[in-house]
Amino acid sequence: MDPISLIGAFSVLAAGLCISIGGISAGFGEGNAAASALQAIAQQPDEAGTITRTLFVSMAMVESTAIYSFVITILILYFNPFWETAVAMASK
């Protein structure tokens, strides 16, 4: 395999791995947070407002890792610096 197709293939593989691992981990974390919050609301329905607000904030915190991996995936797929360098070198 020539270097360009190697770079292309591994970029796609890396993008897939990046979003899948990032998504799975954040999904587990958010699921845990939501489950605990539901339990808490079931035990103390009066505090539902406070619990929901805290849940949103913590979910946003947890989700940020998934968003990071999404941004990295977009970078790899559409703005890949290695690919562009390889293409520029090959066309020289």
Binding site: A60, E63, S64, I67, Y68, F70, V71
Partner: peptide
């Protein structure tokens, strides 16, 4: 940084 990237990413 995460404040900016979170909103943008979503």
């Amino acid at each position: 940084f995460s404040l900016a990237v979170r909103l943008y990413g979503n």
